[in-house]
């Protein structure tokens, strides 16, 4: 089947098998390998991207379902090389170790911060529920999000 998608601002037309998952389309066809696969039950969140601005587990969606959609992956978060304030937060607050879970969390939480600019610690922990991280114990991920929220509150625009 033919699909048309816009990924990180670039238009693509591809012929794909109906059973191809969106995550495999992104990884194997577009070679956008920043989106990861960590499970086969839609639990870990490593595959999260934004489909029409909504955080979506791309392992739980067929590529053909994304026909006509705009998709943002981690590779599109810092288009001009300038880090998104949450990416900066992860670096400043040591929010990642092996980095495997990180892209998915970035895609969920950049969206979350848009709608929840002043989250409490509890809010952030709750918002992270759809993601597994085995390395960090989550504490510094929470702090990374707090860092970004604080910066945004200081009136810096949230890009993307």
């Amino acid at each position: 089947m033919q699909i048309r998608v816009k990924v990180n601002g670039i238009d693509y037309i591809h012929e794909v098998e109906p059973r191809l998952l969106l995550v495999h389309y992104l990884r194997d066809v577009l070679h956008l390998t920043g989106t990861h696969v960590g499970c086969d039950t839609s639990i870990c969140g490593a595959c999260t991207v934004q489909v029409n601005s909504k955080p979506t587990k791309s392992c739980t969606m067929f590529a053909v379902q994304a026909d006509g959609c705009e998709i943002l992956t981690v590779e599109g978060l810092a288009p001009n090389g300038e880090l998104h304030v949450l990416q900066e937060g992860f670096k400043e607050m040591h929010g990642l170790q092996c980095g495997f879970c990180t892209p998915g969390i970035l895609m969920t939480m950049t969206d979350y911060l848009k709608h929840n600019p002043e989250p409490s610690e509890e809010d952030i922990r709750h918002a992270l529920k759809g993601h597994l991280c085995r390395c960090t114990g989550y504490q510094n991920i929470v702090k990374s999000v707090q860092y970004a929220a604080a910066k945004i509150a200081n009136k810096e625009e949230v890009p993307a």
């Binding site: 390998t33 981690v74 040591h94 092996c98 980095g99 495997f100």
Partner: peptide, 21 residues
């Protein structure tokens, strides 16, 4: 010191085995 390896991971440019074709 902030980690020098972070940049590639937060921008989706890490290179794990499954990324290698």
């Amino acid at each position: 010191v902030k980690r020098v390896e972070d940049k590639r991971f937060i921008t989706g440019k890490g290179r794990y085995t499954d990324d290698i074709v």
